[in-house]
Design a protein around this nucleic acid. Structure first.
Lengths: 329, 329
DNA sequence: TTGAAAGCGCTAACAG
DNA sequence: CTGTTAGCGCTTTCAA
């Protein structure tokens, strides 16, 4: 730095008061009712002139908090290229803006095994955590035990206040719709690792589909599998619709079906779940369930902020979803 | 916290050494050559047992650095919903992973006027900054003067080492292509606020188009303008191609053209610039210029990291681009 | 090879 | 209404 950063003492000297008076004045309330207006104004002027900002490390060390939160995405790492995470991160940004927090995207999250992660989180850098993870993530019990304030996003977590969407209703909407447009034999496509939200969607789907007399199969695939093969086999087996646990899978299935020359939705239908806006002109608008991820994430930040302030937050918030008919059914 | 966080002293006590020996051992080199192997092992065991992690604020206060960097997106705020920023942020994540840095998405960036921003950045929270901004951003001179280490992304900045793509070559590729497929009267669509990258693409495009004898108009539009009106007028005026400064604009133009029942590329062609992967099946693959934004961002982090380590970095790195023929020309 | 002591910049408690 | 004092947890001289 060319010019050394101003510190509390510099401001104090310029304003002709002691350091602690300045400190008082720098708090949220500007030391309301604890100093004369004239003094406050003199201090604020000095702050302005010197471009003074309290050093976050000194403050953090003293106060034991940082006003920084982080997002832990359990499955894989946080991939903002996915429409889902783009919505989540956008919502978090909005929440951080309102709650005056900063969001840290930790390099450590890319690499560390979950078991090494907790100490990394307790080093004072973050005050709290948003988590979006699988039910059996080893971090969960440790988080609860360590008492690090956390809010679960999208997937309910035992012992952690959660913000989710109505996966049950969504699963049911898809099942009913497919039944209504005439499908009687459908495949439900899930990820190799099924988050709780996925499980809820699936169980609800299967329950309703079963009650309506539809035949169902479950297909659990890795992204690396040979999709052409299993999609082909499934279609041959008489399945006329692929209900996918999320939009990303639905779009992959759709792409392969089109590639194989199968008419959508004439021969085979496809549905998803998420409804995140996309930035391009789609060939086929997906029939899906629109979930308000932006609001979910924003609320998660606000609730985390409330927890950090010592307030109580509801253990579970459920946002409604909406069925969206597209061109794929 | 149920159990108070372990501190240096606790580890020292358990290992039967003094705090400073532990401190030495916690550095990158584990205090190589400054203590016996037995001592080091005892300390590392104690660290393991207590789950000790150095407090970042104490360390930051003492050392004057945080190993955290931030991204400042000058035009508007950082919107990860856009394919461009998704690529940039992904690249930054990768870079942070390699360089062992964390990325902070500052709440302050949403709100603060540029002029209030600099103090916010000098409060010790971040060691350095990646900037992607307009040439006349008021933050630029202040950044240079304050000597806060920074690297410019995508848009070259005077006095700041920059990582950019070959906008000139890209502009030329588009012009040549449009000429080759028969267009003689084209519109170049730019943003109301033109970043340097946009300017370079445009000037290069106009130069080459002019040399080839094409007639050109420049259209500068706000997102809020009535696109139907100006697109309609432009088409009526005999323009047969819209060359857009980036893909987002190109997709907007394309959507409106299709909406107006105009055949693309039969009647009118559209081109973009960026080539970011999209997550859906596009109706029309865009003819565009593919720029390696992921690599740009990753390199930016690595160079910033090098600067922070006191190394010299090249003042300007230019990544090549590649022309991609799509369905819109 | 190890220890003792000072201090990074700030704030909370307590005096005045 | 304002000042004094102590200490947050760490690293870094300097001394042993």
């Amino acid at each position: 730095m060319r010019e050394m950063k101003a510190k509390l003492e510099d401001v104090a000297r310029l304003a002709g008061v002691s350091a602690m008076t300045v400190s008082l004045c720098m708090r949220g309330d500007h030391g309301e009712g604890r100093m004369s207006d004239a003094t406050r104004q003199r201090i604020l002027d000095a702050v302005q002139e010197l471009g003074y900002k309290p050093n976050v490390h000194a403050r953090g060390l003293r106060l034991g908090r940082s006003n920084v939160i982080a997002l832990y995405a359990g499955h894989g790492y946080l991939n903002v290229r996915s429409a889902y995470f783009a919505e989540i991160v956008s919502g978090i940004q909005e929440g951080c803006h309102i709650a005056r927090k900063d969001l840290l995207l930790q390099g450590a999250f890319h690499t560390a095994a979950s078991c090494d992660l907790l100490p990394e989180l307790l080093n004072g850098r973050v005050d709290g955590l948003l988590v979006d993870m699988l039910p059996n993530d080893p971090l969960r019990p440790r988080l609860v035990e360590a008492n690090l304030p956390a809010i679960a996003i999208s997937n309910e977590m035992e012992g952690i206040p959660s913000i989710v969407v109505d996966d049950d209703a969504g699963g049911e909407m898809i099942a009913r719709h497919l039944f209504e447009v005439g499908h009687r034999k459908v495949a439900y496509v899930i990820d190799e690792f099924e988050p709780l939200s996925g499980l809820n969607r699936r169980l609800s789907f299967l329950r309703v589909a079963g009650a309506l007399g539809m035949k169902t199969t479950i297909i659990s695939q890795e992204r690396s599998d040979d999709w052409w093969v299993w999609i082909d086999e499934t279609v041959r087996s008489g399945v006329t619709a692929f209900a996918c646990w999320n939009d990303a899978y639905a779009r992959d299935v759709l792409a392969h079906l089109l590639d194989m020359g199968i008419d959508v939705p004439g021969q085979v239908a496809v549905t998803g779940f998420d409804g995140c806006p996309v930035t391009c002109i789609e060939k086929y608008a997906l029939t899906t369930v629109l979930a308000p991820w932006y609001a979910v994430a924003k609320t998660a930040v606000l609730n985390l902020s409330a927890r950090l302030a010592g307030e109580d937050v509801p253990p579970k918030v459920v946002y409604p979803v909406r069925f969206v008919k597209g061109d794929t059914t």
